[in-house]
Amino acid sequence: MEKPHNLLTWSEIKQQYPNQWVVLIEVEWPDMGEISRGVVFAHDTNHARVLEKQRDLKSAAILWTGKKRGLSLFTAISNDVDL
């Protein structure tokens, strides 16, 4: 079956937009495992800028195409005040 225009596999997306954030629409993502395909709506190396670009979308996926890394993690240790 022919792919719709601009619908790319995750491998193609990573190859065409390396080491940056991508906003995907028309996402195909199975319940188990990695995203399979999507259409690139926006891309940027800066997270804040890419969030700005996707603000008006109803539905999307926001993903990093480079190597992912862990964080220095946080633990919630105490309640502060009720809002």
Partner: peptide, 30 residues
């Protein structure tokens, strides 16, 4: 290692959530 789940606040903002919808504040220690 994290007692509670954490989501980036900018993502939550873009989904229409705001601090006014929060039910309490919490101190994160890391």
């Amino acid at each position: 290692g994290s007692s509670q789940s954490i989501i980036d606040v900018a993502i939550l903002d873009s989904l229409g959530y705001s601090a006014q919808m929060g039910i309490r504040t919490v101190i994160l220690s890391g």
